[in-house]
Amino acid sequence: MSLKDNLEEVLEEIEETRLHSLTGEKVNLIAVSKNHPVEKINELSQYGCLNFGENKVQEIVDKIPLSKNNIKYHMIGNLQSNKVKYIYDKVVLIQSIDRLKLVKEINKRAKKDDIFVDILIQVNISKEEQKGGVNIEDTLDFLENCLDYKNVAIKGLMGIAANTKNQNEIRTSFRNLFKLKEDIINRNYENVSMDYLSMGMSGDYKIAIEEGSNMVRIGTKIFGKREY
């Protein structure tokens, strides 16, 4: 199947699933383009797919000059504080914030430029040590510590489910993150919005949407296997 066919199939499945989701919200698609050439990204943009997720800072830096102007990049992988300077003003959303050191560094640079940088707090819903993210029980404290940094705008939460075939376990982890999002909304923190609940990838995005996700990160089902 072509990239266009793959994209159309994914969009159809997203829309069908959304109709019986927890919220019925519109779902934002982030096409995970890591390790795929910019030519494929530009091709997908012709079909209306404009948001792309990358895991590595260098890959974002290399791809941006070769990408069409309407393409938006999201940082979805582990971000080191010494790499913040390369992308803080070039991506539309940093989805993998799990350390206060990162928030401080982003805020320092954003304040200097008089801009605001949108972020998601990554929550470790799988409880797997190899995955990044704030422990779910520590997320409120972490969020409250972020409030001092006025040039960083918290726009929601991101989570990655466990790598398991147990769908009940996956569903429970997504449900827990949705409940956390609702809790944060009810606390009415100043300058915090829960616009995005980013959860669900190629293998579990239907479950994620059913449990309230309004942003999914899909790579393999659109691009196929990585080229390098």
Rank of each mutant, 00 (worst) to 15 (best):
residue 20 H to F: 13
residue 123 V to P: 00
residue 48 G to D: 00
residue 11 L to P: 00
residue 56 K to D: 06
residue 157 L to G: 00
residue 88 Y to Q: 02
residue 25 E to A: 13
residue 220 T to W: 03
residue 55 N to Q: 11
residue 60 I to Q: 12
residue 141 D to R: 07
residue 111 K to P: 09
residue 185 I to M: 09
residue 208 A to Y: 03
residue 200 G to K: 10
residue 97 I to Q: 14
residue 103 V to K: 05
residue 225 K to S: 12
residue 221 K to S: 10
residue 187 R to W: 09
residue 161 A to F: 14
residue 68 K to R: 15
residue 22 L to S: 05
residue 107 N to P: 11
residue 28 N to T: 11
residue 63 K to P: 01
residue 125 I to Q: 14
residue 179 K to R: 15
residue 118 D to K: 09
residue 187 R to I: 01
residue 225 K to L: 10
residue 199 M to G: 03
residue 51 N to V: 06
residue 95 Q to L: 02
residue 131 K to T: 10
residue 131 K to F: 08
residue 77 G to M: 12
residue 9 E to I: 07
residue 102 L to G: 02
residue 24 G to R: 07
residue 102 L to D: 02
residue 218 I to F: 01
residue 15 E to Q: 09
residue 137 E to G: 04
residue 115 I to T: 08
residue 120 L to R: 04
residue 66 L to D: 12
residue 69 N to V: 11
residue 25 E to T: 05
residue 26 K to N: 13
residue 66 L to Y: 11
residue 114 D to I: 07
residue 152 V to T: 12
residue 45 S to E: 13
residue 9 E to R: 07
residue 157 L to A: 08
residue 202 S to C: 08
residue 196 Y to R: 06
residue 103 V to N: 06
residue 161 A to T: 12
residue 65 P to A: 11
residue 62 D to T: 11
residue 86 Y to I: 03
residue 99 R to E: 07
residue 96 S to A: 15
residue 228 Y to M: 01
residue 50 L to T: 15
residue 164 T to F: 13
residue 30 I to H: 02
residue 80 Q to H: 06
residue 55 N to T: 08
residue 12 E to C: 05
residue 151 N to R: 00
residue 136 I to N: 10
residue 94 I to Q: 11
residue 173 S to K: 15
residue 97 I to S: 08
residue 14 I to W: 00
residue 26 K to D: 07
residue 179 K to G: 01
residue 221 K to D: 09
residue 218 I to D: 01
residue 11 L to D: 00
residue 81 S to F: 06
residue 112 K to L: 14
residue 120 L to Y: 00
residue 139 T to G: 06
residue 224 G to R: 05
residue 41 I to S: 02
residue 128 E to G: 10
residue 51 N to M: 01
residue 126 S to E: 14
residue 140 L to I: 15
residue 135 N to T: 02
residue 178 F to C: 13
residue 143 L to S: 02
residue 1 M to T: 07
residue 144 E to N: 12
residue 26 K to M: 05
residue 66 L to Q: 14
residue 41 I to R: 05
residue 113 D to Q: 12
residue 95 Q to A: 06
residue 23 T to L: 03
residue 107 N to V: 03
residue 26 K to F: 03
residue 133 G to F: 05
residue 180 L to T: 12
residue 84 V to H: 03
residue 137 E to S: 15
residue 208 A to W: 05
residue 135 N to W: 01
residue 53 G to L: 07
residue 109 R to F: 04
residue 29 L to S: 00
residue 111 K to A: 06
residue 77 G to H: 13
residue 127 K to T: 10
residue 55 N to D: 11
residue 200 G to Q: 08
residue 67 S to P: 05
residue 24 G to V: 09
residue 150 K to A: 03
residue 156 G to N: 08
residue 208 A to G: 02
residue 193 S to L: 03
residue 224 G to A: 01
residue 112 K to T: 06
residue 214 N to Y: 01
residue 98 D to N: 13
residue 156 G to P: 04
